[in-house]
Design a protein around this nucleic acid. Structure first.
Length: 411
RNA sequence: GCGGGUGUAGCUCAGUUGGUUAGAGCGCCAGGUUGUGGUCCUGGAUGUCGUCGGUUCGAAUCCGAUCACUCGCCCCA
């Protein structure tokens, strides 16, 4: 056991793992491309204010989970804990308000200084989308249903469940907040210690407390649905109707809330019971106020992000890498390299070992899952040919060197 | 940040009330096969028992600390 360990909560992705990881990323991108989303690549660090001002000064992410440091010029820099703030910043600094609506996809590492657990890392990866500049519920329907189609493409359509809620508009939220506090305040002494703190800081968080006593109290609490303005209600109804029309299964969870300050109207999560305490696999919502609040032109937005590691743990079928052709030189190594070069030029994956006798090289070919072994022997070479061995059937034939590509590319 | 569990070969794991040279399976290496893998047979090498310290004649085993992983809480993808 080496003393050289990775930093806590970080992970190496060796080829078998990275193939799975890329499959998730790539499938997500392929699906969202069908909706017209293009990839945006933003820096993995930003000035600290980009996150502290947008996520909410009191949120856990900002108060205790950010990787923040001063760079050599003394600026406060933070490794991004999520993707939306950086995309919003890029939108503003790039003057992209001329290009609305804008459909963006992103992928890459995120950083949060948390206690690691299954499905929770300090450096983890997300794929996500943002749809900017559309304030109609159609946008919500597109973005949520697109998430579901992506999960289906990964074979997870039946593994996850979509929960959806509305947080309403500003007036709805103010009214609801007041009603909720009025209801909970008389129970203050009966609430758990955590929930007493929530009551002061972010009352809606009391709703999804896991404490049994809290749950009993919360069961009688007013719901956001009771406080919605007519506009907010109509908006949510349209979102639900749209999802139904697209046959996207969902349940309304009136107690679903969001941790970050910038959300309004639609909030949703795809959850699973297969990952222990980390049930959320993809989550998102609408954030109409975010870009204006950051100093940009008032621009509505909606998006989601999914944890690549969490999805990877659920995905069962990952495509295998292409099977190579193995070249087995009997004597002339240079001739083997020339032949490998020729076959690679026509797109074949070629395995050519660096050492070993025939037996070793055959074993290596087998381990590489090679479909064929091309044996370069003196006898065949004298006839301008090679021996082609089918490693699945064990049969072999002599093939003229000139016809080798044609033979290998034949389906 | 708080609480519980675990840490032995590359991997998955045995290891008795503390006892002398720490084991198995898989994988790896070599041979059986001078130009034939995958199956089979034979043989071989695995190691700071996470790390540091303590108790003891003696520690993988008991104690403490520490690190990592893991489960739950908080929170979240």
């Amino acid at each position: 056991m080496s003393s050289l360990q990775p930093v806590r909560g970080t992970h190496d992705l060796l080829p078998d793992d990275s193939r799975r990881h890329r499959h998730v990323e790539q499938t997500a991108f392929e699906v969202v491309k069908r909706y017209g989303y293009g990839e945006v690549v933003t820096p993995i660090f930003e000035f600290t204010e980009v996150f502290s001002r947008t996520l909410g000064e009191t949120s856990d992410v900002v108060t205790k989970e950010m990787y923040t440091f001063a760079d050599r010029s003394g600026d406060s820099i933070t490794l991004r804990p999520e993707g939306t703030a950086g995309v919003a910043r890029a939108f503003i600094s790039g003057g992209l308000s001329q290009n609305l609506p804008l459909k963006l996809f992103y992928r890459g590492p995120m950083f949060r200084h948390e206690r690691p657990q299954k499905g929770r890392l300090r450096q983890f990866h997300q794929v996500g989308v943002e749809l900017l500049g559309v304030d109609s519920p159609q946008a919500d329907v597109e973005v949520v249903s697109m998430a579901f189609r992506m999960l289906q493409a990964l074979g997870l359509g039946d593994t996850v469940q979509l929960e959806i809620n509305t947080l309403g508009d500003a007036d709805s939220r103010t009214a609801y907040r007041d009603a909720l506090i009025a209801y909970l305040e008389p129970f203050r002494d009966a609430l758990s210690e955590d929930s007493r703190a929530r009551l002061d800081k972010n009352p809606m968080r009391v709703l999804d407390s896991k404490d049994e006593g809290d749950k009993r109290i919360v069961a009688g609490a007013p719901l956001i649905q009771d406080c919605l303005t007519p506009g907010a209600r109509a908006f949510f109804d349209e979102v639900c109707a749209g999802l139904t029309a697209l046959a996207v299964p969902f349940v309304v969870n009136p107690k679903l809330v969001r941790g970050l300050d910038y959300y309004c109207h639609t909030a949703f999560e795809f959850i699973t019971t297969a990952l222990g305490a980390q049930g959320t696999v993809l989550a998102g919502g609408r954030y109409d106020g975010l870009i204006g609040q950051m100093g940009g032109p008032a621009t509505p937005g909606i998006g989601w992000a999914a944890g690549v590691e969490r999805l990877s743990m659920l995905v069962e079928d990952v495509p295998e890498a292409a099977r190579p052709v193995a070249i087995i030189p009997m004597g002339d190594v240079q001739a083997a390299m020339v032949l490998a070069d020729r076959l690679r030029a026509v797109g074949l994956a070629v395995d050519l070992g660096f050492s070993g006798n025939m037996k070793k090289r055959m074993a290596r070919a087998n381990k590489a899952r090679a479909r064929f072994a091309v044996i370069l022997g003196d006898d065949e070479a004298a006839r301008g040919a090679v021996t082609l061995r089918d490693l699945d059937s064990g049969s072999q034939e002599e093939v003229p060197l000139a016809a080798l590509e044609e033979r290998l590319l034949r389906p």
